[in-house]
């Protein structure tokens, strides 16, 4: 790692102040992706602003419209055990990484990083969540802008994520055998206004909504409604773990299984 300083502010306001003090400063949440990146010397921040000491962005609650609101510095383990109102979300969190990673990694860190194979982007997009930052609310549909790219501006910190709770939902992940990240992960959620299907791991553009599947499932929420639907392999990630065609195939399989699991 290159040399850098670490600051541990205790309020969001202080964190933002520290963050904007230099363009070379960078926020640090759970660090489960950032620290390995730093070890490879792929990043060289001047100061890391640790967000894990800010109590105001930790914890899970429910807002007046029934949404589950999760502080950005809440760990995957805390979501797994504390988001019981949204079982599909809790289940997703309970299978991110491994137990030790789940004790450090945070929802805010995951969404800010927007790894194309991460699980949380599928949940956020599949739920139509709202990503709340220190300065604004961003709809999930506007937030994800391609792999490792988000709507976040420099100096902007995620503080909270608000998830509307669906009638039914499930997440199905087919793991890449080495990293155990999603080779393909599909989050399906049925709301009063329709069904959302979000896919992670597959596309070169990062997490995306599969609109044909959403339309089919909105009129008939059953695996059979998906029959004949498929995605093209073009534009899907192709690597040593699977071709674009394979990933496209898995999206269909995982979507069917998610619908079945959602019941």
């Amino acid at each position: 790692m290159y040399a850098f300083d670490i600051e541990r502010p205790t309020t969001v306001a202080d964190a933002v102040k520290l963050l904007v003090a230099s363009e070379e400063n960078q926020p640090l949440s759970g660090g489960q992706t950032l620290i390995p990146t730093l070890k490879q010397r792929l990043a060289s921040p001047e100061t890391l602003i640790s967000l894990t000491g800010i109590d105001e962005i930790k914890g899970i609650c429910e807002d007046d419209s029934g949404r589950i609101c999760i502080g950005a510095a809440t760990t995957h383990a805390e979501v797994a055990s504390g988001a019981g109102k949204y079982p599909a979300l809790a289940a997703l969190a309970s299978h991110i990484g491994d137990p030790a990673v789940r004790n450090r990694g945070t929802i805010g860190g995951s969404l800010a990083n927007n790894d194309p194979s991460a699980c949380y982007p599928a949940a956020a997009l599949g739920s139509g969540a709202v990503i709340v930052t220190n300065s604004r609310d961003i709809a999930a549909d506007d937030y994800f802008q391609g792999m490792f790219t988000t709507a976040l501006e420099p100096g902007e910190i995620i503080t909270e994520v608000k998830f509307p709770v669906p009638q039914k939902a499930a997440y199905m992940k087919f793991e890449q055998p080495a990293s155990r990240f999603a080779l393909v992960g599909v989050f399906v959620a049925q709301y009063e206004g329709g069904v959302r299907v979000a896919v992670t791991g597959a596309s070169e553009e990062g997490v995306f909504r599969w609109s044909e599947a959403e339309a089919a499932l909105s009129s008939d929420f059953s695996a059979s409604a998906l029959e004949g639907l498929s995605l093209p392999g073009d534009g899907m990630i192709s690597d040593m773990h699977g071709s674009g065609d394979y990933r496209a195939h898995l999206v269909a399989v995982m979507t069917r299984r998610a619908v079945t699991a959602a019941g």
Partner: peptide, 22 residues
């Protein structure tokens, strides 16, 4: 079932960490 040490045609190791070497 899992392990595969793979190089690309330029000799770059593709399975260069536990992220890709299962």
């Amino acid at each position: 079932l899992l392990e595969n040490c793979t190089y690309d045609e330029n000799g770059q190791l593709l399975s260069a960490s536990y992220m890709d070497y299962a």
